[in-house]
Amino acid sequence: MRRQILTAVIVTTAALALSACEKQITAPFEKGVCFHVATNKDKTLRFNPVARNVETMEQCAATLEGMRIRFVRMGSPNRTLTGAYQGSFIFLEKEGIFLGQTYDGARFMSLVRTGDGRLAVPGAVRQAPPAQ
Rank of each mutant, 00 (worst) to 15 (best):
I69S: 14
D104E: 12
K23P: 07
A62P: 04
F91R: 00
Q127Y: 04
I90D: 02
A131P: 03
T12C: 15
P77D: 05
T12G: 08
T7L: 12
T114F: 03
I25P: 02
A106P: 13
D104T: 07
M67P: 02
L81T: 00
I97R: 00
L119K: 01
F71Q: 06
F29P: 10
V125A: 13
T39A: 04
E65V: 04
Q4Y: 09
T13G: 13
C34V: 01
V54L: 04
R46M: 11
K94M: 08
E55Y: 04
T56M: 01
T44C: 07
A51P: 02
I69Q: 10
Y103L: 06
P49T: 12
P28R: 12
G117A: 06
A17V: 15
A62E: 09
T44S: 15
A61D: 07
R118P: 03
V54I: 13
K23R: 11
A124I: 11
R79Y: 06
G87L: 01
T102Q: 09
A61C: 12
V121S: 02
I90N: 00
G123Y: 02
Q24R: 15
T82F: 03
D104F: 06
F91P: 00
F35A: 02
R46H: 05
K41H: 10
F108N: 06
L6C: 00
A8P: 02
C21N: 13
R113N: 01
R126W: 08
R52T: 14
A17M: 12
T56D: 03
T44N: 10
F108Q: 14
S110G: 09
G87C: 10
A17L: 15
R126A: 12
A27C: 05
Q101M: 15
N48A: 07
L6V: 08
K23T: 08
E93L: 12
I69V: 15
I25G: 02
T114A: 12
R70L: 10
T13S: 11
G123A: 08
P77Q: 06
P28I: 03
N40K: 13
R46Y: 03
I25A: 07
L6M: 09
A106L: 13
Y103P: 05
R52P: 05
S19T: 13
R113D: 01
D42P: 01
A128L: 12
R52I: 02
N40Q: 04
N78H: 06
R113M: 03
T7W: 00
R70C: 03
T26H: 10
A62F: 06
C21G: 14
K31M: 14
Q86I: 14
E93I: 03
M57L: 15
R79L: 12
L119A: 04
G105A: 07
V121P: 01
G105S: 05
V54M: 08
M67T: 13
T44V: 11
H36C: 11
Q4D: 07
G100F: 09
L64M: 13
T102K: 09
P28N: 06
S76N: 14
